[in-house]
């Protein structure tokens, strides 16, 4: 059976530090757009840390929630694409074939999570910043959509390596850039088709919820909700 890649994000551990955001930029050749374009809503962050304030001073709480492509099993972005640029891979990823994309942006509208980004202009890197570009990831031209791939280049590299060594991919062997960077270990990546994998075990947690799961999108990212502390005094 094909792997079904999934992720668990423990909101109790996430500190909102944004390491994942920068790691993703570095890994996936996401161009920066500059102040003017950022002001016009064209900044691209395949993963973002959503922040919500609750309550009023002095009883304020803050919640962080990293949001990336949820790699839905019933992804609204996929059927609407007229050119099969967004499609479902055999390993359950919401693939985006850049070459096929003609830029209808329908997928971005259909996505309830707003995690698809459009190249309003050709990406630019002031020389020699271009030397940083990751050769394993293609640079996206003007007019096409891009999105989180669960670092498919890392997945493929590990799968090829495992195959060469005639073994299965080990649990935890693959780490997308965001997961790799996460200091408090809030993100776990792995194979949901293996019930023993860490990600499967955590996804079954009673704290587990799916973001906008009521829309029937069947996301493959599970969020573990924060728990309020209930220590000895309050027990």
């Amino acid at each position: 059976m094909a792997h079904q890649w999934g992720m668990v994000i423990d909101l109790d551990r996430c500190t909102g530090c944004a390491a994942c955001v920068v790691a993703c930029h570095a890994e996936n050749n996401i161009s920066t757009v500059g102040e003017d374009q950022a002001a016009r809503g064209r900044a691209k962050h395949w993963i973002r840390v959503e922040r919500y304030y609750e309550g009023e001073f002095p009883d304020v709480r803050v919640k962080f929630m990293p949001v990336l492509c949820q790699q839905c099993d019933a992804a609204p972005c996929e059927p609407v694409c007229p050119t099969f640029a967004s499609y479902h891979t055999i390993e359950g990823l919401n693939g985006q074939v850049y070459n096929r994309c003609i830029g209808t942006r329908y997928c971005a509208n259909a996505c309830p999570y707003n995690v698809r980004f459009f190249n309003f202009y050709n990406p630019e890197w002031d020389k020699p910043l271009n030397l940083q570009l990751n050769p394993d990831v293609s640079v996206r031209s003007v007019g096409i959509m891009e999105k989180c791939t669960f670092c498919v280049q890392r997945i493929k590299a590990s799968e090829i390596q495992a195959e060469a060594e005639k073994r299965a991919v080990k649990d935890g062997e693959i780490q997308p850039a965001c997961v790799q960077s996460c200091s408090p270990h809030a993100m776990v990546f792995g194979d949901l088709s293996d019930p023993q994998s860490e990600v499967s075990r955590l996804a079954r947690s009673s704290r587990g919820t799916k973001l906008l799961g009521e829309l029937g999108t069947q996301p493959k990212v599970t969020y573990l909700q924060r728990e309020s502390w209930h220590g000895a005094e309050n027990a």
Binding site: V21, A23, K127, L129, S183
Partner: peptide, 30 residues
């Protein structure tokens, strides 16, 4: 191409903060 924490290192434990990740751009700064 990419900076990551050194898993063997007793301080970073294989992790890096957002600022550390961006250290690449110091070298390649135009």
């Amino acid at each position: 191409k990419k900076l990551e924490g050194n898993p063997a290192h007793p301080i970073s434990h294989g992790r890096l903060c957002p600022r550390g990740q961006a250290g690449l751009q110091v070298t390649y700064h135009p």
